[in-house]
Design a binder for these strands. Structure first.
Lengths: 205, 205
DNA sequence: GCCTTGAGAGTGAACGTTCATTCAGCGGAT
DNA sequence: ATCCGCTGAATGAACGTTCACTCTCAAGGC
């Protein structure tokens, strides 16, 4: 197995399976609310064996972040190879609002709260956001035909705004149910304005 | 004492004192992370006595929401009686970004996570948001000289967007530290556009 | 003046439960 | 015979909650 530079290796298939099966239990009970017994039961194994995979709850969250991150990187790879990356990006973002985000929002609410309390988790969560910002930047650089470094400083605010908005919507959906059409329209308008602003900001004209 | 219609009376002075003194401890340890012993110690009293004021952790959060809500209602009252309510509102919103929001963001991250898990807390949190939306609506109705009912349906999306943005920024600040100037500029731009849009939407021209 | 009363604020030990964590031991493969 | 993946009972600490108790003090009878 190649040594990974991530803070948590956890890349093996079994860990992924376990992570997938405890995801819901973890989201429903929260970081402190979910006991190791709960999680082991959700994973369908004994407590002792569970400890062989995740020595602490923080490790679970870190691994979960890593897991989600690779998924997101895959999504971005698809976006980048599509023929209209900016449109494809928009579509994926809006997709996050309509479906499945109930579970995701709950999980992210928990992770966010835990990230503020536990430094190790905070680091993982922050690294996740930074990576997403970086992936967005790559797409924006491509779309505007600007060097990556220039795009980084030029679109920093927009990237962070996008990440914050998507996360806020996911959490809000988990808390209040699907957004009202009025709110959805407002959010889409902000996102569209933001993306259009970047699309019209190409180098050389 | 007059009967209050709020779900949680908790309006007496001693409860307020206790709430203020456990606020930080609660935010730092989280809903499940903070034990009743922790909270009693933070309040400077014995466990037994603490239970006389708050029979459960959910009751603490509910009372905390009620407490914050009256504070916010006071703020809105000041805004409403100022000579330029829309400007005053803008100022107050931006104020929330610069200062003190570290502690508030942490607390709100905790409350949000807990709100998804525990229905009683979810109700309190949702009621809080609804009240704020309602207060915003009142100001917007006044500024546009429209009847309240019309303003309610007309500005629903904008109000919810504002609440979501302010909360997201507070939580983000607690997690990542003060926002970069680029992000701050982006958020302020969205808010200004939103407020300007409403200011220019007066009835009769 | 002085004693009695009782209600309100406060205490902290005690209860049974659940927690994170460990580890002696199990069956099946080699 | 020996490894290996796995089990689940065991451990002590910490948990939420209760309760018998003390302290303080104002009211009221004598």
């Amino acid at each position: 197995m190649p040594a990974v530079t991530h803070p948590v290796p956890a890349a093996d298939a079994r860990s992924h399976e376990i992570l997938a099966s405890i995801r819901q239990a973890f989201a429903e009970k929260g970081f402190d609310g979910a006991s190791m017994q709960d999680l082991a039961r959700a994973a369908g194994m004994s407590v002792g064996n569970f400890y062989r995979y995740f020595p602490s709850k923080a490790a679970i969250v870190q691994a979960m972040c890593g897991y989600d991150l690779t998924e997101i990187q895959g999504e971005f790879a698809e976006i980048q190879t599509s023929d209209r990356p900016m449109l494809s990006l928009r579509e994926r973002i809006l997709n996050h609002f309509s479906e499945e985000s109930l579970k995701d929002g709950q999980l992210w609410a928990e992770i966010t709260a835990a990230a503020i309390r536990k430094p190790e988790i905070g680091q993982a969560a922050r690294q996740m956001e930074e990576t997403i910002v970086s992936l967005l930047t790559t797409i924006f650089a491509q779309a505007t035909r600007r060097p990556l470094e220039e795009a980084r400083v030029r679109y920093e605010g927009q990237c962070q705004m996008l990440v914050m908005l998507v996360k806020a919507m996911a959490i809000r959906t988990a808390q209040c149910g699907p957004a009202s059409p009025a709110l959805a329209a407002e959010v889409v308008a902000v996102i569209d304005r933001l993306l259009a602003q970047i699309s019209n900001d190409t180098a050389e004209g």
